[in-house]
Simulated scan of single mutants.
Amino acid sequence: MDWTLEVVMVPVTDLDRSIEFYRDRIGFDLDHKTVNEFMTVAQLTPRGSGCSIVVGTLPAQQQMTPGSLKGLQLVVADAYAAREELVGRGVECEEITVFDERDGGTLFGFADPDGNTWAVQQMKVRGEKPLIPR
């Protein structure tokens, strides 16, 4: 049986600010924004990913403190180009650290406006063999 991770809830304080950050600065696609009497949520997906994030007012999110999610990880084929792209969009990023010269050992990090943190790992193989076929 396959088990796929498809959604991670990210606790935030301001839905519209979070949409702007993840869509316009980080480059995630906005899949939908839903507002009704039960919830206000948005689902955003990194390009090339099978897993999305959800920000908003779902009951499980209300149980988490905004900014308390630490160490979510994104994978890119070129960490240097990815960092340059984010910095160019106004995202404060950590410097790149090379822990190991082999694929997977190059990383940098950033935080969203609430302080949820992300690591960006370089896996050059993703440029040749993406997880989601294009």
Results as ranks from 00 to 15, higher is better:
1 M>Q: 06
1 M>G: 13
5 L>M: 14
6 E>L: 04
7 V>S: 05
8 V>T: 14
12 V>K: 00
16 D>T: 05
19 I>M: 07
20 E>Y: 05
21 F>A: 13
23 R>M: 10
25 R>P: 00
27 G>C: 07
28 F>M: 14
30 L>E: 13
30 L>I: 11
32 H>E: 07
35 V>W: 01
38 F>W: 03
38 F>C: 00
38 F>H: 03
41 V>H: 00
43 Q>G: 02
44 L>Q: 07
45 T>C: 04
45 T>D: 08
46 P>W: 15
47 R>C: 07
49 S>F: 11
49 S>T: 04
50 G>W: 05
52 S>P: 00
53 I>G: 07
53 I>K: 04
53 I>R: 04
53 I>S: 06
54 V>R: 02
54 V>N: 01
55 V>H: 01
56 G>P: 02
56 G>H: 01
57 T>L: 01
57 T>S: 01
63 Q>S: 09
63 Q>G: 02
68 S>I: 13
68 S>Y: 09
69 L>A: 14
69 L>C: 08
70 K>Y: 10
71 G>C: 08
71 G>K: 05
71 G>I: 10
72 L>Y: 05
73 Q>F: 09
74 L>Q: 04
74 L>P: 01
75 V>C: 10
76 V>S: 09
77 A>L: 06
77 A>T: 04
78 D>S: 12
79 A>Y: 07
82 A>P: 00
82 A>Y: 04
83 R>Q: 11
83 R>F: 06
84 E>W: 02
86 L>E: 08
88 G>W: 04
89 R>G: 13
89 R>L: 07
91 V>F: 14
91 V>T: 06
92 E>S: 12
96 I>N: 13
97 T>N: 09
98 V>L: 04
99 F>D: 06
99 F>Y: 14
100 D>K: 06
101 E>V: 12
101 E>N: 06
102 R>V: 12
103 D>P: 00
104 G>M: 12
104 G>L: 11
104 G>W: 08
106 T>A: 15
107 L>G: 04
107 L>A: 13
109 G>E: 12
110 F>L: 08
112 D>A: 15
113 P>V: 13
115 G>R: 04
117 T>G: 06
120 V>A: 15
122 Q>M: 07
125 V>Q: 10
126 R>I: 14
128 E>R: 05
128 E>L: 14
130 P>G: 12
130 P>Q: 10
131 L>W: 12
131 L>R: 06
131 L>M: 11
133 P>L: 15
